[in-house]
Amino acid sequence: MPSPKLDPVLLSDEERSVLSGWSRRRKTAQALALRSRIVLRCAEGGSIGEVAQSVGVSRNMVSKWRSRFLARRLEGLSDDPRPGRPRVIADERVEQLITKTLEETPGRDTHWSTRSMAVATGMSQSAVSRIWRAFGLKPHAIETWKLSTDPQFVDKVRDVVGLYLSPPDNALVLAVDEKSQMQAIDRTAPILPIMPTTPARMTHDYIRHGTTSLFAAFDINSGSVIAQHYRRHRHQEFLRFLKLIDAAVPKELDLHLVLDNYATHKTPKVKEWLIRHPRFHLHFTPTSSSWLNLVERWFAELTTRKLRRSAHRSITALEADVRKWINEWNKDPKPFVWTKTADQILDTLAAYCQRINDSRH
């Protein structure tokens, strides 16, 4: 039995232009581009089978989108709205939940849970959880912070940030600090390796085998690190580390060291040594502002990538393992790029202070 004769696909100039654009544009959804090519090929007079073979799809697909185009023209190539359950929580109720989360507490508790909020609003726990996720609310989470009381806070911020953003010529800027009390610890049972669907596992308890301190100087330009372990953490060790830096850096370069206000950095012995070595320039961060020292960011890398999941049965083993990790780091160092200006930092802190004052009223 012969196939019924198909209605021809006739395109206006505007339709042909739109379809051609849809079929070629990179940002067009691939499904819409394919449908556009089917209709354009049909308009050239090909049969359903010829078009299917040419485009690389099934005959049923060609027939479907050919018919849809003839019935609804360009609008027929878009997907129909999918049926779904209508919303049961109105915008007003969502707003009430958000306002209650931000401005109220649940009585005896310090913060809302999905259960207590569900009881208070008459919603389900899953609905409360979905709304909180949509608005990025985490009532259970809290972050700590501390304001510096350093009377020279503003000047020190501008000094340190200025070094980061515009290092002096013919000089090396080093962020220096000590990671003290690094513990050589061993788990009471072997660490179980990662397996499909199961993370690595280690015992909660451990055995201590002593501590060591890591003195580190982070080059903000290259990301390389000068580091040395010392068993104690006094001005004598700090002086030895300064001498190590002095020997490691070419003599023609000035040295600008960013440091915290720890007492071992300011002893008379240290000051006397610095006077005899005028290429060293010390820049102190404000009190309670360790976040200004870029070496702290490198210490975080060391902790996350090496120390947190390691086990060592002696201080010697810990020091050797950390030294090996540092050597590998220095083969391909990664500098941390400071982006905030001093004014941006001070404006942010001023906004925090204003929020604190407002919260007291």
Rank of each mutant, 00 (worst) to 15 (best):
Tyr164Lys: 04
Leu165Glu: 11
Leu165Asp: 09
Pro167Val: 12
Asp169Lys: 12
Asn170Val: 07
Ala171Val: 04
Ala171Ser: 13
Val173Lys: 05
Ala175Leu: 01
Val176Met: 10
Glu178Val: 08
Glu178Thr: 06
Ser180Trp: 02
Ser180Thr: 12
Met182Cys: 08
Met182Ile: 15
Met182Val: 13
Gln183Pro: 05
Gln183Tyr: 09
Ile185His: 03
Ile185Ala: 10
Asp186Val: 08
Asp186Ile: 05
Thr188Phe: 03
Ala189Lys: 11
Ala189Ser: 15
Pro190Asp: 12
Pro190Leu: 04
Leu192Val: 15
Pro193Lys: 07
Thr198Phe: 10
Thr198Asp: 08
Ala200Cys: 12
Ala200Gly: 15
Arg201Ser: 10
Thr203Ala: 15
His204Glu: 08
His204Ala: 00
Tyr206Thr: 02
Ile207His: 11
Ile207Gly: 01
Ile207Tyr: 02
His209Phe: 10
His209Arg: 04
Gly210Lys: 11
Thr211Pro: 06
Leu214Pro: 00
Leu214Gly: 00
Leu214Ser: 10
Leu214Ile: 04
Phe215Asp: 00
Phe215Ile: 00
Ala216Glu: 04
Ala217Pro: 03
Asn221His: 15
Ser222Thr: 15
Ser222Arg: 14
Ser222Leu: 06
Gly223Pro: 03
His229Trp: 05
Tyr230Thr: 00
Tyr230Gln: 09
Arg231His: 04
Arg231Cys: 04
His233Asp: 09
Arg234Ala: 08
His235Cys: 12
Gln236Glu: 14
Gln236Pro: 03
Glu237Val: 01
Glu237Cys: 02
Leu239Phe: 07
Arg240Gln: 10
Arg240Phe: 02
Lys243Ile: 05
Lys243Gly: 02
Leu244Val: 13
Asp246Glu: 14
Asp246Gln: 01
Pro250Glu: 13
Pro250Ser: 13
Leu253Trp: 07
Leu255Ile: 15
Val258Pro: 07
Val258Asp: 01
Val258Glu: 09
Leu259Asp: 07
Asp260Thr: 03
Asp260His: 09
Tyr262His: 12
Tyr262Lys: 06
Tyr262Phe: 12
Pro268Asn: 11
Lys269Phe: 08
Glu272Gln: 14
Glu272Ser: 09
Leu274Ile: 15
Ile275Met: 10
His277Asp: 09
His277Ala: 00
Pro278Phe: 05
Arg279Gln: 12
Phe280Ile: 07
Leu282Phe: 15
His283Asp: 00
Phe284Ile: 07
Phe284Gly: 11
Thr285Cys: 13
Ser289Phe: 07
Ser290Ile: 01
Ser290Gly: 13
Trp291Arg: 06
Trp291Leu: 03
Asn293Thr: 04
Asn293Ser: 02
Leu294Ala: 07
Leu294Arg: 03
